[in-house]
């Protein structure tokens, strides 16, 4: 085993494609406007999953989703009425609302955020503010 070979293996281990800390996907949105208080896990919205299937305009133009985590005051009544997530999660386009745990899947206490966002990484305070 030459030193050169060892260096190649070492470099491979350090490649971004192979290495990196355990983090959720860039753009995952956590919504915890009401979840913690209601005794539910906060919601994780995986952007990566949805953009494979829908272009940005489908949700951000037609369904009224704001460009801010937690910016829409979404609650389950609105969803059941077909607003926001409920436009698709109605058992026709996507699975319906009785699958609570598929959205309400974050660790309890996780604050509302866009995961790995620049604002979160560079500008947010070190500790999240207590919920109002």
């Amino acid at each position: 085993m030459s030193a050169r070979s060892l260096r190649i293996v070492g470099a491979l281990l350090l490649l971004p494609g192979f290495a990196g800390p355990a983090t959720a996907e860039y753009g995952d949105v956590v919504i915890n406007n009401y979840s913690d208080a209601a005794g539910m896990r906060p919601v994780i919205f995986p952007h990566w999953f949805h953009r494979v299937r829908f272009r940005c305009a489908a949700c951000h133009a037609d369904l009224g989703f704001k460009f801010k985590a937690g910016g829409n005051e979404i609650n389950m009544m609105k969803i059941i009425d077909g607003e926001y997530c409920g436009a698709c999660h109605n058992g026709e386009i996507a699975w319906s609302v009785e699958n609570c745990d598929m959205c309400h899947s974050a660790k309890p206490g996780t604050p509302t955020q866009v995961h790995e966002s620049t604002v979160q990484k560079l500008l947010a305070p070190a500790k999240p503010k207590p919920r109002q």
Binding site: A24, R41, I44, D101, A106, K107, P108, H115
Partner: peptide, 9 residues
């Protein structure tokens, strides 16, 4: 680090 590994989903 974000998902609850104990969550049913």
């Amino acid at each position: 680090g974000l998902h609850d590994p104990a969550g049913p989903g």
